[in-house]
Design a protein around this nucleic acid. Structure first.
Lengths: 344, 344
DNA sequence: AAGGTTTGTGCAAAGCTTTGCGGAAATAAA
DNA sequence: TTTATTTCCGCAAAGCTTTGCACAAACCTT
């Protein structure tokens, strides 16, 4: 138990005036005598007064708090987005409360319930990997608390969301591989229920089509987004009788893992097999060879999600569902350099 | 403005009983009739009642909230520690509010003030890079709110802290380099004001001493923890007339940057120059060659800090300052392999 | 001097919960 | 029938802030 902070009451007692007078003095109410105002302010400063946020929340029925649910906070992709959210929220006097679903549907539901009970003013959510049933968001609709999804989304007619154009980006990536000499492009995809998986697979197939390559079901493997499963998938691909000459991975983890497995087999990237993926700016340049990748503007995604949410929170009208698509850019680096070209 | 949630009052009205009865029924008060209890509970469930946390905070004078201040949330080291904190806090029904100082003393002060005004029950802090003046923690002492530092600490007689044995680890790292053939070990250190810097420099010098190497001031460079400054430092070392054959970097950023610069110069790690540092498990294995490093048990550090804090929060006695030193282990990988030995 | 206006301040309610205490009704005992 | 005992439930205060309304005092006008 910690010490009680000073309240208006304490100051009123000290100065021999009423609580209301103190309250008003602090906000320069027009018809208080200047002396009183000065006295009150001086004492407030000396005693280091700050309004009790709980009393305020109770009164105002708003908490200046945003709840965030992400699959995990350790992955750079998410922490960077969180950073963007924090940035925007902070600018507007909002605090964020972060909770991670650890890619579990159960935990996601639990976190959602907790944040709702905490009376957050709004929510920003990225779905967990194994969320296939979206009924828990019904309660959000009921409560009329604004919610914005990002990256992994659902119920887009009911909730705003921030995404990148996955179809287009995946297509671009596939075409890029073809142009740089790959003829057998494999794709290690994510869990089939996620929108990002579906969209990227769609883009992959469109890309193949555009290049006149036929889709080979053996070259498309779904896995969850762990290092382990990605390693298994990679090895499966590499041991095909007709192995791929390029792999397009659905995200960071998958790419890292694939790269490790490829190196273990003494194969060279990109000479033997090119490698591309979706990732964030940071990691693409840490690994070697540097990764050709669709880089998410993570910080911006976070900021945008927060901006949308703040808009909805402060909007007088009922609902303003919006889908924002951010620009993701393909950055060509070493891992998919043209065959035969010397890598420096 | 969102919909009001149901309150005890609403339910009391609906059932035609008093608020107190509803409140007591929900906690199975002994002298209420079983029928009333059943009715209340049924309605509470149907209406999805949850106590208003602000009313509770007001009443109980505690918020079940922990404030966390870190230099940034994007770096894996910190996000992983945060993850540990969240884990432990969650288990005990506490929420965490995270704010980042962005390595700025000013922001750190501001965050501290905000969290104090928010009435958090406790604080977990890692100092910013340019915090040299620690007077802002006076207010924490005054408020009697428990605080635990980790990694970058100060005022250790007044606040508990969780650290690793930097001196010992740095010494070990230096000796390891010597044993594997390095004779001129350089150290890129952090800002001189940080305890981690001082301790690692001390360990470095002890290590040199133990190996019978004399300390060369040219081989010790201080820099802030950015990619850019680390690159400058690395180049300065490499262009000495008598350049080092090993670099010991104070943290991740420094190491990544140094590695890039070394590769740019077409030098080989570890053949031309060995590289070791302090980092987390994850990144050490992502870069190539894999990094020999003192790996922080980041998740555990977070859990331990939270554990200490929770102890203090729930302790009836006044103060129980504790210094916990976590085990950091040196993991030998490729970047410092014995000279001449083949790297697989 | 009496009524009207201005100026400065306090009361009280609302927002929500918990809990000590007191009170009413019902039952048991005398 | 009256008193004592249970059994069940409500009042009210505390925790803190804001704000509409009311009240009092001082001033001004006629």
């Amino acid at each position: 138990m910690t010490k009680r902070r000073v309240s208006l009451k304490d100051m009123a007692k000290e100065l021999g005036v009423s609580i209301s007078t103190v309250s008003r003095a602090l906000k320069d109410h027009y018809d208080l005598s200047p002396e009183i105002i000065a006295k009150v302010k001086a004492l407030a400063k000396e005693w280091n007064y700050a309004p009790n946020p709980f009393a305020m929340s109770l009164l105002k029925q708003q908490t200046k708090t945003i709840g965030v649910i992400v699959p995990d906070i350790v992955t750079h992709f998410y922490s960077s987005i969180i950073s963007g959210i924090e940035n925007k929220a902070g600018e507007n006097g909002y605090y964020i409360i972060i909770s991670s679903s650890q890619e579990s549907h159960r935990k996601e539901k639990e976190n959602l319930k907790n944040l709702l009970n905490l009376r957050v003013d709004g929510l920003i959510v990225c779905l967990s990997q194994d969320t296939m049933d979206f009924s828990h968001f019904e309660s959000v609709l009921d409560s009329e608390i604004p919610l914005v999804f990002f990256d992994r989304v659902c119920r887009t007619e009911e909730f705003s969301s921030v995404v990148i154009d996955n179809v287009e980006a995946a297509k671009e990536l596939t075409v890029h591989l073809f142009k740089n000499g790959s003829k057998k492009v494999a794709h290690i995809a994510g869990p089939p229920n996620l929108n990002i998986t579906k969209e990227r697979v769609e883009g992959y197939r469109k890309g193949l089509e555009e290049c006149g390559l036929t889709f080979d079901p053996n070259l498309l493997i779904h896995c969850n987004l762990s290092i382990e499963e990605a390693a298994v998938a990679t090895n499966k691909l590499l041991s095909l009788k007709n192995p791929p000459d390029a792999i397009f991975g659905v995200n960071d983890m998958v790419i890292f893992s694939a790269m490790k497995e490829i190196k273990k087999k003494k194969l060279k990237v990109p000479e033997d097999i090119a490698l591309v993926g979706f990732t964030d700016e940071f990691h693409a340049t840490v690994v070697e060879p540097n990764l050709t990748a669709v880089a998410h503007p993570t910080f911006e995604i976070g900021k945008e999600a927060a901006r949308l949410l703040l808009n909805e929170i402060n909007s007088p009208v009922k609902k303003t569902v919006q889908q924002v698509t951010m620009k993701a850019k393909l950055i060509e680096r070493e891992s998919s350099a043209k065959r035969g070209k010397q890598i420096s």
